[in-house]
């Protein structure tokens, strides 16, 4: 098992005809992921070709899902149209919408998140690297890659990774892989203040997943999502957890690339979050180079 997506999950790509979407659709196909449909309004009937594979393009998400059995969407649509793309997935009752798009207006996300309440579709992101469930082939080939993460750094295994940041996730994954420890699923939940899936949501899924034996949770300054997850872990989590918080040196009130990473309240500084992590029994990585080792101090694999 894994969480959210597995080998063979059928994926559609919204914005497959744009540069960014096309590039990563190709990389996912190369990785062995099942990219079964593209969606670009007005280009229905065309075909996206790569590596001998022909991927049909549809005008709507509903058509694509009905005709190809896709259950998950990777969204590469430009910011002004991205919230609309997310809600189209909700309308089509997909299992999962993964919004890679960076720069979506907060107001659009506030409205979209409200409109998703009570619906079956889960949103990951926006402004996220997506998620990877590594495969069993060479360099984890054959897994399910949705988004922009490099597939080859992964290795199939038993550590769940959740993070807001892309490159910091890759750093943790690579440290694990270099130490011979594979991953069940790696989830980038995104750096925006309003996102679909929180650290805690992912931690709960990992806790219930039989294949996941241990967890790395990577957070940042700003907000209280990591604190909320840490407190839940203390009460309920059966598995060892290591954590890292980026932004100890960030000046207050400045936005550090991620809109979410702005220090505001008492519990959202790096020092406060690290203290709460420790109180909740999480093995804290002193530096970003120490993330895998922090986990291996509490989990022998």
């Amino acid at each position: 098992m894994s969480i959210l997506v597995k080998e063979g999950t059928r994926v559609l790509v919204q914005g497959i005809t744009g540069d960014f979407g096309a590039r990563h659709a190709r990389l996912s196909i190369d990785y062995g992921s099942q990219v079964v449909a593209g969606v670009t309004p007005g280009k229905g009937g065309q075909v996206f070709e790569h590596g001998g594979k022909k991927v049909p393009i549809f005008n709507t998400v509903a058509d694509a899902a009905r005709q190809t059995g896709a259950t998950v969407s990777a969204i590469f649509v430009p910011p002004p149209f991205a919230a609309d793309a997310i809600l189209e997935c909700v309308d089509a009752d997909l299992d999962l919408a993964v919004a890679i798009t960076e720069g979506i207006p907060v107001r659009d996300m506030v409205r979209a998140k409200r409109a998703m309440q009570g619906r079956r579709t889960r949103l990951i992101g926006p402004n996220c690297p997506g998620l990877v469930t590594p495969g069993r082939g060479d360099k984890s080939h054959g897994g399910c890659r949705i988004g922009i993460a490099p597939g080859y750094i992964h290795r199939r295994g038993n550590v769940g990774v959740v993070s807001r940041s892309g490159t910091l996730t890759y750093e943790a994954v690579w440290q694990l892989t270099c130490r011979g420890k594979g991953q069940s699923t790696c989830v980038g939940i995104g750096g925006d203040p309003v996102n679909g899936t929180s650290h805690l949501d992912v931690i709960k899924l990992f806790n219930d997943d039989p294949e996941t034996e241990a967890i790395i949770m990577i957070g940042e300054i700003g907000g209280n999502a990591e604190v909320e997850a840490a407190r839940w872990i203390k009460q309920h989590c059966k598995k060892p957890v290591a954590g890292f918080i980026a932004g100890a040196t960030a000046p207050a009130g400045r936005r550090m690339g991620h809109a979410g990473a702005v220090i505001g309240g008492a519990e959202d500084t790096a020092a406060a979050k690290i203290k709460i992590f420790k109180e909740c029994g999480i093995s804290v990585a002193e530096t970003p180079s120490d993330m895998a080792d922090a986990l291996l101090r509490v989990w022998k694999g």
Binding site: S163, T167, F244, A248, T249, H258
Partner: peptide, 23 residues
């Protein structure tokens, strides 16, 4: 490259006794 990695690069400079000049 990457905001999270950039923030933690500043952190690790400080961890080893240095002082970051920028993000």
């Amino acid at each position: 490259n990457g905001a999270g990695l950039a923030m933690s690069t500043m952190d690790i400079i400080q961890h080893f006794g240095g002082s970051p000049a920028n993000f």
